[in-house]
């Protein structure tokens, strides 16, 4: 479904993606993990066409994403930071995106699911961080697309909303969708993800199922398995932990 071939991207002298190749065909949740600055968001933004790679190709359902923007019709994206126009009401924002996409949307179901009803008439800049994230989630899940990309979906959510989010992700999974998630919260990843792609310095170091990762590293939980992967590669991100 998503096929990434030899992707290179540098910002100035900083090589963020280094000849990265990755294929995601498995239905369900694939978590893209890696330390800060490993290139996760750049990878996601490349898939979305927001970052233009220096070299390499990305195809979705066999179609090169450079050639046509219409692949984004079948793709939902949750940005890492819920940054939306400040002067719009939540209601207006949702209406605007619906109008731009021109597709049937399940916004009402989602508003009820995440309990956003009381906030619909508020302006976006008056909302708390968690509520903003819920608006972000409604906008991302609204269109029932077969491919969903979530960048740090759990950030700022209270425990109840977090449970809701996991519940919703499980519903989406049951429909056979492909979901890409980045997160730094390993317990969250462990609960929802079947597959792990581990990214380090712009390269994929591991791509396989969660159980394969545990077997490979000989660790019981994901947090230690990831740490083991980092240690194995002698990564500077661990220097502080060791000393």
């Amino acid at each position: 479904m998503v096929n990434i071939q030899n992707l290179n991207k540098a910002f100035g002298r900083n090589q963020v993606l280094d000849n990265l190749s990755l294929e995601i065909d498995q239905k369900g949740v694939t978590a893209i993990l890696g330390p800060n600055g490993s290139g996760k968001t750049t990878l996601i933004k490349s898939i979305l066409g927001m970052v233009i790679p220096d070299k390499g190709a990305i195809t979705i359902n066999g179609k090169d994403i450079k050639k046509d923007v219409l692949y984004r019709e079948n793709l939902d994206y949750l940005p890492q930071i819920a940054d939306f126009p400040d002067n719009l009401k939540v209601k207006e924002l949702i209406k605007m995106i619906k109008d731009l996409r021109n597709k049937p949307a399940r916004d009402e179901t989602l508003i009820r699911f995440f309990g956003l009803g009381p906030f619909l008439d508020k302006k976006f800049n008056t909302l708390s961080g968690g509520t903003r994230q819920k608006v972000n989630l409604v906008l991302a899940f609204m269109f029932d697309s077969p491919l969903i990309i979530l960048d740090e979906p759990s950030s700022g959510l209270d425990p109840v909303s977090l449970i809701r989010l996991k519940e919703w992700i499980n519903r989406e999974k049951a429909q056979g969708k492909i979901i890409l998630v980045t997160s730094h919260i390993m317990s969250f990843v462990e609960e929802i993800a079947e597959n792990i792609a581990f990214l380090l310095d712009g390269k994929i170091y591991f791509n396989g199922s969660l159980s394969e990762l545990k077997i490979k590293t000989g660790r019981e939980d994901l947090e230690h398995a990831i740490a083991a992967l980092l240690l194995e590669n002698d990564h500077p991100a661990l220097v502080y932990h060791e000393s």
Binding site: Y71, Y77, D83
Partner: peptide
């Protein structure tokens, strides 16, 4: 309008 632009960029719209 950077936020608005970023929002639009993720939609099926040409740059």
């Amino acid at each position: 309008s950077r936020e608005f632009t970023n929002l639009l960029l993720a939609q099926p719209l040409k740059r």
